[in-house]
């Protein structure tokens, strides 16, 4: 009997020019002055020059309303967040824990649309901070991936993180990102094999998103011990900066992660701050976001790398 272990082989019969052929051509037209360096490249290079890690903050668009969401994101930039991830609220967030699920629910019940997400990107990118969209794949496909890439670029977006779009399925998306000179960011996980680390990092631009633990989003008491290992393994296969996400919620944790990674990504903790304000005091959510962002920003500067 013939061995059937054929799944290890590269995909056959994919559309012309498989993933390997989709390497980014020179960014066309837009912001020629960038000379091939994207806003994300610049921010990571600048932070490296300062001997610190980049702080990436996530909030979903439309939570609790589009305008309040924008205010919170702008406030976190003012408080020291370097890069913003604008979440696109989705009906089936299989990679998110309860905090982000609930926020997406509120946003969707409030009627948030993909256009609102792009409007949010525009308002946040206006601060000068590189602004990405973080989205499940189906809303992009439904919008039309070329149109989405074009509208994201014209909103001033720096790129998009697509956690359920693996590079194998991303040929058209990679081409659209290249055309619009935006950065596609893919994820690696503690379970990624060396071959997959090479595949994923070879298609990422701007930075590589390293999920620190096996699990969904949510603040954790301890950032996974596997995160450091993962960063080491990623650095063996790429020169791209590595940002670590999943579980970071305090300045101390940010400092710890900044000790071994190029970037620290914080999501659920910021969402919770926006949702609950200062807790008992019932303080304003936007102020709570700014306060936490300032604590985290101090954290990424405190690390002795």
């Amino acid at each position: 009997m013939r061995s059937q272990l054929a799944h290890d082989q590269p995909a056959q019969g994919q559309p012309a020019g498989g993933p390997a052929a989709a390497a980014r051509p020179v960014p066309a037209g837009r912001e020629a002055a960038r000379a091939g360096r994207s806003p994300l490249d610049e921010v990571f290079a600048a932070a490296r020059a300062q001997g610190r890690a980049v702080l990436v903050g996530y909030l979903p668009a439309g939570f609790p309303t589009v305008e309040r969401g924008i205010a919170a994101m702008r406030a976190m930039v003012a408080a020291g967040v370097d890069v913003v991830e604008v979440g696109l609220p989705y009906s089936d967030p299989t990679m998110d824990g309860p905090v982000i699920q609930d926020a997406a629910d509120v946003a969707l019940r409030g009627g948030v649309t993909t256009r609102d997400v792009l409007r949010t990107v525009e308002a946040v990118a206006d601060t000068g901070a590189p602004t990405l969209v973080m989205t499940y794949w189906n809303p992009v496909e439904r919008y039309g991936l070329e149109a989405f890439a074009a509208d994201l670029a014209s909103a001033g977006g720096a790129g998009a993180i697509t956690p359920d779009l693996p590079p194998e399925e991303a040929d058209s998306w990679l081409a659209a990102c290249a055309t619009q000179a935006i950065d596609p960011v893919f994820l690696v996980a503690p379970s990624s094999t060396p071959q997959r680390l090479r595949l994923v990092t070879s298609h990422s631009r701007g930075f590589v998103y390293a999920a620190s633990t096996m699990g969904v989003t949510g603040a954790r008491a301890a950032v996974g011990a596997r995160a450091g290992d993962l960063v080491t393994r990623v650095r063996e296969v790429t020169t791209l900066p590595v940002a670590v996400g999943l579980g970071v919620s305090t300045g101390a944790q940010a400092a710890e992660v900044a000790g071994f990674a190029d970037g620290v990504i914080v999501g659920s903790a910021l969402v919770r701050a926006l949702a609950t304000g200062d807790g008992e005091g019932g303080g304003d959510g936007v102020e709570a976001v700014a306060r936490l962002a300032a604590e985290l920003a101090a954290g990424v500067r405190a690390a002795s790398a």
Partner: peptide
Amino acid sequence: RFVPEALFAALDELSA
């Protein structure tokens, strides 16, 4: 396969 990277190893293991 439209899943998070974390599941790829398990899907490969299952396929094999």
